[in-house]
Every structure is written in C-alpha cells, then in structure tokens.
Design a protein around this nucleic acid. Sequence first.
DNA 1: GTCTATATCGCGATAGAC
DNA 2: GTCTATCGCGATATAGAC
Lengths: 195, 195
Amino acid sequence: MPRWSPDAALRLEAAALDSFEEHGFTDTTVPQIAARAGLTTRTFFRHFADKRDSLFLRDREFPQAVRDFLRSVPAESTPVATVQLGLASACRGVQGWRPQIARRQAIIRSEPALQERDLLRSHRLGLAIEQSLVERDVAQPQAHTLAAIAVTCFDLAIARWLDEPPDTDLEENLLAVWDDVRAVMEEGAGDGRGR
Amino acid sequence: MPRWSPDAALRLEAAALDSFEEHGFTDTTVPQIAARAGLTTRTFFRHFADKRDSLFLRDREFPQAVRDFLRSVPAESTPVATVQLGLASACRGVQGWRPQIARRQAIIRSEPALQERDLLRSHRLGLAIEQSLVERDVAQPQAHTLAAIAVTCFDLAIARWLDEPPDTDLEENLLAVWDDVRAVMEEGAGDGRGR
DNA sequence: GTCTATATCGCGATAGAC
DNA sequence: GTCTATCGCGATATAGAC
C-alpha cells in the first residue's frame, strides 16, 4: 500500500468544490481544502497555482484534446467547417459532465475572481483553436477571429444548456447558437446598412 | 495647499509602471510602489483591488464611455454599423495613449497573471457593447456575439497598431481588421464548404 | 493608519516506486 | 541508487479587518 494515493489532484478538486459550496469561496481556506482531501497545504500548491485554480483541473487537458481532434480533420475541410466539427466533438466530450459543470458554474457566478479565471479557460480554448487553424494554413488574423467566434458560440451554448432540462443535448444547442451567429454574420457581411 | 494631492491613483499607476519595468512584476512589492508614489500601502489598496489592478486604471472609465457614445448613435443605425461607429470612437480615444499602452503591453506579456487581468478588460468592454446593443433592442444572443466580434477586432487592431510605426493610425488598422473579419464571416455564412 | 490572517512559495527531508 | 510525490517548517507579501 503506497503512502500516498495517486489521485491527489482529483481529491483536492472534489474537496474544493464541496468546501466552496458549503462555506463559499472566500470563507474557505486552502488548509481546509487540503485537510478535507487528507493532504497538506504545501501539496495543494504543488498541484494548483492558487485557490481558484482548483476548480479548473478538468480543463487542463481540454485545449490539447481540441488540438488533437482538429489535427484529425481532413485538410479539405474549410476553416469554418473544421471549427464546427471541433466544437461538436467538444460537446460530446463535455456532455457527460453536466452535473459537475452546473455545480461549478454556480460557484463561479458567485465570485468575480472566479469569473476572471473562467475567462482564462475560454481564452485557452480559443488559443488551441487558433493554433490548430494556423497549422492548417489559415492566416493568423482570420484564425484568431474564427476562434473567438467559436469560443463565443461554445460558451453561449453551454450557458443555454445549463438553463435547460438535464437531458438536453448540448450539440443541438450549439447548432442553434451557431445559426444565431450566422444571422449576425450575414448582416455584418453587408455594408453596415443591412442587405 | 491640500495635505494630499488629488492625483494619488495616477501617481500610483505611474509608480507601478516604472517599478514593474525596473524589477519585474513579481519582484515588485506594493509597499515599494506606494513609497515611490509618496503614499502608504493602505492608500494603494484604497485605489486598487490588487497589485495587478494598478496597471489598468485607465480602463475603468472606458466601458462607460463606450456606453455613452453608443447611446448617442441614431436608432436607425444597424447593430453592425453601430458597433463600427463605437469602435471608431474608441480608437480616437485611445490613439493618444500609444506610448503608455505599448509599455503596459510589454509588461502584460511577461506575466500570466496580468494576461488574465487583461482578459477581464476585454470582457468588460464586450459587456458594455453587449448591454448597449440590448438597450437598442438587439436580441441577447446576437448582441453577445456581435460584441465578442467587436472586441476581437479591437484587440487585434491594437496589437497590429503596436507592431507598426508610432504614427500609424489606429482607426485605419481597425478597418483593415474588420475587412479580414468580414471575409471570415462571409465564408461562415455559407454551408461550411466555401461559397 | 495599524494589525493580522492567510495565501503563496522556497527549502530540506522522507518514503516508497522502479 | 535514482526519481518523484509528499511532508513540515518557515518566510514574506498580499489583502482585508478593526
């Protein structure tokens, strides 16, 4: 039997989520979280950069997963189609985590510091998409913009999804959002005075 | 003669910028910044939420200025045209601050914690645009998306502007970026297989 | 303005895995 | 033995309470 079990980060994440729900983010101390996970404060900080970071363990591998998936999309696929495929894949990856995501969102909403950290999550997702597009020979500015649009759609779809019954399909939400965005885009493609 | 001069926040901001450039962000302490501005640590925290915040004093009034400007745009203007006018106005407001912005960007790039704070700046600008659009009876999701695109364009234009000679016009950069975005949008308006 | 909690992190030691 | 994850102690600065 090992002296320490190998899932320290996961236990810390669970302990943090529970603690934040019970006492609120600010009134929870790192020693409390660590103790709850059966670990020390020092160990907490070896796994997480700060208290906020403990809520975002799950998202660490997400950008890489997106990059990996986008690399598997055929080169003939247009940038927009590629991004759509990527988002659909991301939806499938996220679909099963709805309860945890809902719990986390509730905590994030309650704390500006966490909202800020959540922006970093979005930003990193955008960066992964942007880099993947550049790898596919999309020009930097276009890649940047398209990635920003994609992230906006994704976040918007998640927000709507969490407002709906638990069995709703995230991917369907995403398609609906994408259509909304397309409407904005088509207006934007004109001369600014409608088409 | 007042016992304290009325520009405490401005002096602290300048002191912070200088200190960060000299010793780096992490190696600069708040007492150092405060002393340099001839003030106490306590006073620093009366003006700024945290160390990072001292670099973003200028941006506080920015969202409100954008809101005010957008309220002055005629109601007949389409959402996209309105946003374009708003960004052009923002460009004019920012144009004069190029040296300070360039110095700040260099520091931000060096420190992940500051990059995260910078995302909050973008987010708040987006929020101001989104809210202004909703006030003009644009539907929430469309307003959200259009605001995200606008912020993306603005940030991209600033980034390009800082890479170019000091006398370059920011507004011209913005128009160029907007055209790039329009290209992406037009492809996005199709069936995902190009047009 | 002063005082204090606690977030954060450097360092050396330890204990199992291989 | 070497490597890695953890622990325990201690120092400092941030940030907020009084």
